[in-house]
């Protein structure tokens, strides 16, 4: 699976930033992942959740055409697939940001003021919970206990955990991500982002 991931990140020549203008174009590799999985692991409904995991791991979300395709391959109706996708928090039908900001809302984080952390991130990014910034750079969500209670309040940025947060450290993390993205964009030959909002 590691190789597959590399393909997608390397393809746009390191730009990394998803073009907001063409969000609905689905990478056809997703369909090939489904084909490969079904031929390796024959079965029906019991293969649905593992397969959805596989696809979301690659695409970052589960667009409807792919759900329909999965349904056909497993001999299910599209609504049976959607019923499962909509039931589980982990599955999402909207694309996520390049930096997924996931604020842990476990009890330990909660009693350590995770709500403030969440509000600060909302303020900084200008998006609501569950939203994505227009440039697809950040998405913000609250997640269930990530089990890093010793680090409370904690935040996951993609797969990296940050702990013992305060509004001040959160601001620092956010600025760092933003400038990292800007640098990346500049070095990729894109137009320099001269705006400096925060």
């Amino acid at each position: 699976m590691a190789e597959m991931r590399n393909e997608v990140t390397e393809e746009p020549a390191g730009s990394g930033l998803i073009d907001a203008q063409a969000p609905e174009e689905i990478d056809s590799e997703a369909y090939r992942i489904v084909d490969r999985y079904v031929s390796e692991q024959p079965g029906g409904q019991e293969q649905l959740i593992p397969l959805l995991h596989r696809v979301q791991e690659y695409l970052g979300y589960l667009p409807f055409p792919v759900q329909e395709y999965v349904a056909g391959k497993l001999g299910l109706s599209p609504v049976e697939v959607y019923a499962v996708v909509s039931f589980y928090h982990f599955f999402t039908t909207t694309p996520r940001g390049r930096y997924q900001l996931k604020v842990c809302m476990g009890t330990a984080c909660f009693v350590n003021n995770a709500q403030t952390i969440c509000d600060v991130l909302g303020d900084l990014s200008g998006i609501e919970l569950g939203g994505v910034t227009e440039d697809r750079l950040f998405s913000l969500e609250q997640v269930r206990c990530i089990g890093a209670c010793g680090l409370a309040p904690a935040l996951m940025v993609n797969d990296e955990a940050h702990g013992h947060l305060t509004p001040i450290t959160v601001r620092k993390i956010f600025r760092k991500l933003k400038s990292a993205a800007r640098k990346e964009k500049n070095s990729a030959g894109g137009e320099a982002d001269s705006e400096n909002k925060h």
Partner: peptide, 20 residues
């Protein structure tokens, strides 16, 4: 692998989830 549903810790719900 679960998919983020607290109720799946309940044994009968967990079995439904394994069944897909």
């Amino acid at each position: 692998i679960g998919a983020g549903a607290f109720v799946c810790g309940e044994e009968t719900a967990l079995m439904n989830s394994i069944e897909g």
